[in-house]
């Protein structure tokens, strides 16, 4: 793990871990549903980057095809998520997750 800041597999592992942790941090500390969605996208991107790095490392194109499918599924997921968000805004008048605590025990 010496080459954390170069374009080696270790460097990509470190960068992807950092981006993933930033995404988790955003989900934990923000209350806006739109920002939380963006953090989910950030985490998916970090995983995509790591998958591509491993695909190049092993010289195997299947990993990059998987990244392509992840992007396709993420696009569909975000479409549905934003539609649900519009409905939440219409029903509660805010996009804060504090307005959605009816199922909280």
């Amino acid at each position: 793990m010496e080459n954390l800041f170069s374009n080696t597999l270790d460097g990509y592992l470190f960068l992807a871990s950092l981006l993933f942790a930033i995404g988790v941090l955003g989900i934990l500390i923000r209350r806006n549903i739109i920002i939380i969605f963006m953090c989910v996208e950030l985490m998916l991107s970090a995983v995509n980057l790591l998958l591509t790095a491993f695909s190049v490392h092993h010289n195997d194109p299947n990993g990059q095809v998987f990244v392509f499918f992840i992007m396709a599924v993420a696009a569909a997921e975000i479409t549905i998520g934003l539609a649900i968000l519009v409905m939440i805004y219409r029903n509660t008048g805010s996009v804060s997750i504090d307005s959605l605590k009816k199922l909280k025990w």
Partner: peptide, 27 residues
């Protein structure tokens, strides 16, 4: 949240440490 995310990152990096040989070759 900051502590939890930082611990998560330390855990991930620690789990990746000692992963495989040749991981310091430039991609």
């Amino acid at each position: 949240g900051a502590i939890a995310a930082g611990l998560l990152m330390v855990t991930i990096v620690g789990a990746f440490k000692g992963l495989s040989q040749g991981s310091d070759v430039a991609l």
